[in-house]
Design a protein around this nucleic acid. Sequence first.
DNA 1: ATCGGATCAGACAACGTTGTCATGTAGAAG
DNA 2: CTTCTACATGACAACGTTGTCTGATCCGAT
Lengths: 341, 341
Amino acid sequence: MTTMLDVARRAGVSVKTVSRVINNEPYVQDALRERVKLAARDLGYVPSASARSLRSHRSYQVQLISHIMTTPYVHAIQAGAMQTCQAEGYQLLVAVLPDCDGDPVDMFHQRFERQMAMKKPDGVILVPPFADIDAVGAWFSEQGVAVAKIGTQSTLNSVLSVRIDEFAAARDLTMLLIEQGHRQIGFIRGRENESATEERFRGYRSALDERGVPFKDDLVVPGTFDFASGVDGGMQLLARSKRPTAVFASNDDMAAGVIVAGHRLGLVAPRDFSIVGFDDSAIAEKTWPALTTVRQPVLEFGTVAATELIRSFEAAGRATDSAVRVLDHRLVARDSVAKVP
Amino acid sequence: MTTMLDVARRAGVSVKTVSRVINNEPYVQDALRERVKLAARDLGYVPSASARSLRSHRSYQVQLISHIMTTPYVHAIQAGAMQTCQAEGYQLLVAVLPDCDGDPVDMFHQRFERQMAMKKPDGVILVPPFADIDAVGAWFSEQGVAVAKIGTQSTLNSVLSVRIDEFAAARDLTMLLIEQGHRQIGFIRGRENESATEERFRGYRSALDERGVPFKDDLVVPGTFDFASGVDGGMQLLARSKRPTAVFASNDDMAAGVIVAGHRLGLVAPRDFSIVGFDDSAIAEKTWPALTTVRQPVLEFGTVAATELIRSFEAAGRATDSAVRVLDHRLVARDSVAKVP
DNA sequence: ATCGGATCAGACAACGTTGTCATGTAGAAG
DNA sequence: CTTCTACATGACAACGTTGTCTGATCCGAT
């Protein structure tokens, strides 16, 4: 293994100068800088991450923390974050905290205290539902770790938040249904205690109100963002004698469930009922009919979060500006919505 | 931050003794061992990963390398591997190598040489298509990194391989179709140059031969394991005047595509044609009809690979036994297959 | 009593980098 | 011509752990 010392000898300078060149520090003359770079390239020198982080107390690692790993939403965020991390010379660590009851903050404390001490990540990316628990973000902040939250409304000081305007998106989507003549629109909620659930519902209600469509309590059923709960919700809504003409499922997986529920009842979308999802995840174009939905730039969530995070501790001296990045959403009209006859 | 020195002082021993206790090395008396453990617990001591790996030349990291991050197959493997790594005190790093032409070995060399030098992972997990390129596995082996390959037939010396018997699984699935009276069975292949593609095809052919069903060349169409290619393949097979009565798609995503292709042609499964997939991935139960398929224990692939990997460098002295782990598959009969009228 | 081996514990150096401080140089200001 | 400042470089220690080596103790066998 070639070390800084080897490079230093080859370039005829001290190790410290090599270090300065490698880390782009000032106070090295251009000619010398070039000589060192050349020597490093010649020898195929690569800095040792462990030595570097041992000495500098920085890990060059970003930790992504999620509840579950097998949802396309989390997956896409991971893909985006990884892309950025790789490009910037950071490493993305992925951790999953499985379900467990009790205080989430305690859980985090217990689970991450050890890891934080071992290998303090420079930053963490939090996705829902953790992003929605202020105390979790606050805890990491206290530990001196930069925090980026994804998809949440809740904004905390000194914490970056990346999301779309879920309210507006849900409102747009509902408007589309109303414009097609629907006035009986069922709604399947997401997991409770997540801001997305509430925002999407607010958007739905707002569109109703705005267009003078009466809101009916019994058209709203609970859900948990997963396929099975979509089937349940779909059965509840579609089995009625006077069933809604359209269903707004709070995400695509649940919307796929509603389609299946329809089939079980002998109903085919969009002939017998219209259905919309949310997220534009992979399944949205794999169902029949393909889902009309609203696209979140999920991959971009990941890249933006990672980029801002890295920027924030790269410029360590500057104050951590708690920014909120609201990215654009986009309505994706496919085949699951039809005009009311 | 509390260090070994703090623990040593508190327990009244030398740092080296603390090190021995922490790493479960022999030659420490039980009483002393307990005293040290107590002191460590009292102080909330956690070893520093960077110092440890700087000195011991081990990273306590396992690297998962995949082609693409957004497939449920890779995802499940990641989830399994992570689970094990977390439990064993290792960290799972995830890297994605996007498409690019040229020699894959060159690509790996270029992309990982730097990372290998910086933070030599103790082991790597390779998934298809990389698992199928012997030279890639060999390269890592040469670098002194333990290698585990997933889902590939190709076995290399001193490399662990975790998979199911794809041939037998495909054979079973085809048998099921034949038993339902199908004799015109279309087949959609996977990506070429992956052993899974060939093995599944071999299984299909073998079942045909065994039951005396004539094999027809024109019933086999190409595919790439993704949804869109399933739609294409489905269109090719089902649009014919004399269409097959069943289709074997080499994975579930493509099978979902065939269902959609059917709809486009006005055909409904399983009434107008039967369809089977492969993998039992998440989408298999989200389609209508739900897919009959064969389940690969993908999550277990991850856990087994990680476990064996860790075991292998934990017992560094022992010879690296190049094992092949063949896990059990299971036929999952859902609703996409019907008897031939 | 003496020896030999197994067991136990500690002193010390080393891993490869970066932070601190000291030193040297050149140009500007007095 | 001196003094000051800004820029350039290097010597050295330190980060927290583990590998190596040496020494001490204990037991049973000579």
